[in-house]
Amino acid sequence: MRRSQEPGLWALFSAGGMLAALVLPVLVAVLWIAAPLGWVELPTHANLRALIGHPLTRLVLFAVVSLALFHWAHRFRYTLYDGLQLYHLNQLIAIITYGTATVGTMVTGYALVVFP
């Protein structure tokens, strides 16, 4: 029996959704709410440079950005497919959405590798 290839895409989608849900609210709360209101001290440029200099930080950033892109791709694909009912464009939509996520992943990977 033909098996659907969807599990792989869904795994990326759900991993991205979960990571984004865990990480982004914390970043928003700290950097955009707590810091401007003076509840916590805003990290300096040098702090952030040092933080991103660590390989583990880059790995986490890579995972968050790339998986969040695949989460977007999957959701946007089905928004177009079911929401606008573009069934005849299924393949094109899939190529554009997952393609964008793939390109975004590669750009992120490249940027994190070459960043001094």
Binding site: R3, P7, G8, W10, A11, S14
Partner: peptide, 13 residues
């Protein structure tokens, strides 16, 4: 079920 099916897919593919 999607999670079970994904784990099953990882195991088999």
């Amino acid at each position: 079920y999607k999670l079970s099916a994904t784990l099953d897919w990882v195991k088999s593919t």
